[in-house]
Amino acid sequence: KEFRPGDKVVLPPYGVGVVAGIAQRSVSGVSRAYYQVDFPGSRSKAYVPVEAPHSVGLRKAL
């Protein structure tokens, strides 16, 4: 896996977040693995496909 729990990442347009782990989510009846990204200071979460994280701009924070 490219990202691990605890990694600081950037996800446009949300900003800097932390990978909380990998979650299985069902979309249109198909279960897939997603990185769960939490954003400190907020209750917001984002789910990014493990198979294509760069397709939505997910990258490691510098």
Rank of each mutant, 00 (worst) to 15 (best):
K1W: 15
K1F: 15
K1D: 13
K1P: 14
K1Y: 15
E2L: 13
E2T: 11
E2C: 14
E2M: 13
E2R: 11
F3T: 01
F3M: 03
F3K: 01
R4E: 08
R4A: 10
R4D: 04
P5N: 06
P5R: 13
P5D: 04
P5Q: 10
P5W: 04
G6L: 03
G6Q: 02
G6I: 01
G6M: 03
G6D: 01
D7R: 03
D7N: 03
K8F: 13
K8T: 08
K8N: 06
K8I: 15
V9Y: 07
V9G: 02
V9A: 00
V9D: 00
V9T: 03
V10Q: 05
V10W: 14
V10Y: 15
V10A: 04
V10K: 04
L11P: 04
L11E: 01
L11G: 00
P12L: 08
P12V: 07
P12Q: 07
P12C: 15
P13M: 08
P13L: 08
P13V: 05
P13N: 08
P13R: 09
P13K: 09
Y14V: 02
Y14G: 00
Y14E: 01
Y14L: 07
G15L: 03
G15I: 02
G15N: 00
V16M: 11
V16W: 12
V16S: 06
V16K: 07
V16D: 06
V16L: 15
V16Q: 11
G17Q: 01
G17E: 00
G17L: 02
G17H: 05
V18L: 06
V18N: 03
V18E: 04
V19L: 08
V19K: 00
V19A: 00
V19N: 00
V19Q: 01
V19T: 00
V19H: 00
A20R: 12
A20H: 08
A20I: 13
G21W: 04
G21A: 11
G21Q: 07
G21D: 04
G21S: 08
I22S: 09
I22H: 02
I22D: 01
I22Y: 06
I22N: 00
A23D: 05
A23I: 15
A23K: 13
A23C: 15
A23Y: 14
Q24R: 11
Q24Y: 15
Q24F: 15
Q24K: 11
Q24H: 12
R25Q: 06
R25N: 05
R25V: 12
R25S: 05
S26R: 13
S26Q: 10
S26E: 12
S26Y: 13
S26M: 14
S26I: 14
V27T: 08
V27W: 10
V27E: 09
V27G: 04
V27N: 06
S28V: 07
S28T: 06
S28Q: 14
S28H: 14
S28M: 14
G29S: 03
G29I: 01
G29T: 02
V30M: 08
V30F: 08
V30K: 09
S31Y: 13
S31K: 11
S31T: 14
S31R: 12
S31C: 14
S31W: 15
R32Q: 08
R32Y: 07
R32W: 04
A33F: 14
A33P: 08
A33I: 08
A33M: 13
A33D: 10
A33L: 14
A33E: 11
Y34T: 01
Y34N: 01
Y35N: 02
Y35D: 01
Q36I: 15
Q36R: 11
Q36E: 13
Q36G: 01
Q36F: 07
Q36T: 09
Q36N: 03
Q36V: 15
V37S: 02
V37L: 06
V37H: 00
V37C: 04
V37P: 00
V37F: 02
V37G: 01
V37E: 01
D38C: 15
D38W: 15
D38L: 13
D38G: 05
D38N: 13
D38S: 13
D38F: 14
D38P: 00
D38T: 14
F39D: 01
F39V: 02
F39P: 01
F39Q: 00
P40C: 14
P40Y: 13
P40M: 09
P40V: 10
P40R: 08
P40H: 09
P40L: 11
P40D: 08
G41M: 10
G41P: 13
G41A: 11
G41Q: 11
G41L: 12
S42F: 10
R43A: 11
R43W: 11
R43S: 12
R43H: 12
R43T: 11
S44H: 14
S44W: 15
S44N: 13
S44C: 15
S44G: 12
S44Y: 15
K45D: 02
K45Y: 12
K45F: 12
K45I: 12
A46W: 08
A46P: 01
A46D: 00
Y47K: 00
Y47A: 00
Y47L: 06
Y47C: 05
Y47N: 02
Y47Q: 02
Y47W: 11
V48F: 04
V48I: 08
V48N: 02
P49H: 04
P49S: 09
P49L: 12
P49Q: 05
P49T: 05
V50M: 05
V50C: 05
V50E: 02
V50S: 01
E51F: 06
E51V: 06
E51N: 10
E51Y: 07
E51D: 14
A52L: 06
A52C: 15
A52S: 11
A52V: 05
A52P: 04
A52W: 09
A52N: 14
P53G: 08
P53N: 05
P53W: 15
P53Q: 06
P53C: 10
H54Y: 10
H54D: 12
H54K: 06
H54I: 06
S55A: 10
S55L: 13
S55E: 11
S55Q: 09
V56Y: 13
V56A: 14
V56N: 10
V56E: 06
V56C: 14
G57H: 05
G57Y: 04
G57N: 04
G57V: 05
G57W: 04
G57Q: 07
L58D: 03
L58R: 03
R59V: 09
R59S: 06
R59I: 09
R59H: 13
R59L: 07
R59A: 05
K60H: 15
K60V: 08
K60F: 11
K60W: 09
K60D: 07
K60A: 10
A61Y: 15
A61D: 07
A61I: 15
A61P: 05
A61M: 11
A61L: 15
L62T: 12
L62E: 13
L62N: 12
L62Y: 13
L62Q: 11
L62P: 12
